[in-house]
Design a protein around this nucleic acid. Structure first.
Lengths: 222, 222, 222, 222
DNA sequence: TATGAATGAGGGTTCATTCAT
DNA sequence: CATGAATGAACCCTCATTCAT
């Protein structure tokens, strides 16, 4: 996961005599991190639009109105940018999931809550989810992103446990494979990022309710 | 779409009066295309594993035990290889879809058939579907792959028409958005390619049946 | 024609609200373009010596003591280098031609002036003229160099008009084909670049005078 | 210079016991060389149109309706093809020049004859002359084409000697540099190949007469 | 913080040529 | 004679990254 220091992963251990980077007198230190956050947002947009590999650091720098080399004052590498994007997303959604689980007793309500949370991230985290969808296969090959797999496993546990509880309480059909069912729900939600556009016919919550209907009761008319 | 000639798009300089290279009587022309097909298969495997962009022509050539330049004896470009993979997939699945539609009267049976066809392609076309899932965003930016979008639209029409017919006949819930529902079904199926491995707990048809249950009747126990 | 910006044709992505990279107050911007001009000169020498196609970007980079990829920090492409060479030459000679036409009343003086200008470019633009002579046939096939043909047409008009005026005033033989005559004069001058070496028996202006004698009065002794 | 054997430059010294290539029973041996000559003509056309370097052996083979590898049954290399084209041209023109010199006493008549011969080759040897004009700079760098320089020197001697004789006899102006004058005449003629098209306003002989007028008496109206 | 110049590794592609069939 | 597959070297160009200024 990314540290919050301006340039992660590079700072060798600072020796005793060396002085720490001094805060520049003129600006508030918040400004620097605002600039940084702005760059991350620009990059995220490009990664989502063209894919991580197809986006060059020059693309990002152009968008920011600086030269590509200048990006390296803010980030270690192209990877560290996408890392920031993805880790931010994961941190947030896992907290939201946990909150839903903590707040609900009924597994059916919990599942509904999780689905609503998931759809709810579609808009604010569109770029991150798109990157996950399109570039996950590439990124997971890199050691630095091993933590993503770990986070995914934790999430899977949350869902599967809830589904199993629902089956035990007689709420969900007993002939479902919980793992399989989780994956289908997860994929169905995330993959919507490919065609979902804010401002379309349905907003993210509309989508969620539509999906909940189908998921709970199927498409058949009973 | 790809032509079937060994190297499409090249050597269009042959003058009117001159004769084209004549087919020799002795050899089987099938052999040449077998080699070609073999190379396509190797490339597909690599594209699926590492992504189209991350796969170099040298990777493909290495896998085939030849030099990278030698690939260009068989293909115009790296793009033309992936073109062949994708167009082959689309041609096949669209024919299979059409057959299902022609054979069935009942929309519910038709939808079930379409779902089974879709899951049925998961194994034989694993690579093509994976490429579609991961690299579609990149490939669709290229003029040469515009036909893919067109094919997708045709497929959508097939599904949506069937879903609407089912609603009209009182088989499916009337409060479903057919387009949305189609997309969810489609994505749920294709995205399974990310984790589906032949020889796992469930085979592709097992998956199909599991999904049909959920899709038709939901996860609730009624 | 070539723009004067460091890298033409690239990075047009800058959004509306964002500011372009600001010029630093301290450094002389001329230095950057000096480096660039130096590289252009090196390339011109090589193009003249070995031909455009036979000169590799590595040749140019080697000559400059950098890596081939580094050239692309200064130029978009190999073509853009030769473009710069040729467009510079055309811009200059057309201005010089126009000045001669503006300054002279008598067509005979004008023609003499044009010839002297033409021979006068032999030394400072030796490389550009050589490239025009040897690689024109290849370069004109490219859209990007269409402007060269246009410039050539303009030049032709200058000469032909002057020759025709000379005929009308009874200065030149009326049985000459002005277009043909122009071409012969032009080619005779430019082609001299193949064997003309500064520092030889005759300098460029000596050549011009020799040629003017032959051109005006022929080789016969009257 | 090129030998007349089918594949020049490659045949190592044939040992005593080895048998010479046997004439195939079926066809006349002339057919093979006709085919060969046809290929040379096709290649010449392409070399003239696109330049030697820009013409690929595949271009030539395409034009002939065979595969590029098959060309190597007729020629050693791409170079040997252009060699054949150029050496044929030189052999012919030098013989024609010599005949003119042998037939004429008067230097003025001789020069006129040489000019007419030169223009006369414009049509039948258009391709060869074009290659000489455009690719000479490239080809002369190769050992194999050293003989071309030698032939050029011989030709220069013919012209210069004649011009000097004309000066000695008081026919030509004494203030001319014979070498320079020769070069100008030569270049003016050959360079015409760039725009001369058979079937245009003037044929090659018309061009010759036009040029002779200018050359002997200048463009001035006396 | 930014610039501007450069690196170094690699990318897709071309092409003359070879050779077994 | 021709094919078809392959070689091997080179080509133009890209791009993440570094670093002195």
């Amino acid at each position: 996961m990314t540290t919050t220091s301006a340039k992660s992963g590079r700072s060798r251990t600072r020796g005793a005599g060396e002085d720490a980077p001094r805060r520049r007198g003129r600006g508030a230190p918040a400004l620097a991190s605002e600039r940084r956050a702005h760059l991350v947002r620009l990059a995220a947009e490009l990664f989502a639009e063209k894919g991580f590999q197809a986006t060059t650091v020059r693309n990002i720098a152009d968008e920011a109105g600086i030269l590509s080399g200048s990006l390296y004052h803010h980030f270690d590498s192209k990877e560290s940018i996408v890392d920031e994007i993805l880790s931010g997303f994961f941190t947030e959604i896992m907290a939201a999931y946990q909150a839903v689980i903590d707040e609900n007793e009924n597994p059916r309500d919990t599942i509904a809550g999780l689905v609503r949370v998931a759809f709810g991230t579609l808009e604010p985290h569109r770029a991150a989810i798109t990157v996950m969808q399109n570039d996950w296969n590439y990124l997971r090959g890199m050691d630095r992103f091993a933590y993503l797999t770990k986070s995914e496993d934790e999430v899977e546990k949350m869902w599967v446990t809830t589904l199993q509880a629902g089956q035990a309480e007689g709420l969900f059909r007993p002939d479902l494979d919980p793992k399989l069912t989780y994956r289908m729900i997860r994929d169905t939600v995330w993959v919507a990022v490919r065609w979902f556009r804010p401002g379309g016919r349905l907003n993210a919550q509309g989508l969620a309710e539509h999906y909940l209907k189908v998921m709970f009761d199927g498409i058949n008319l009973h």
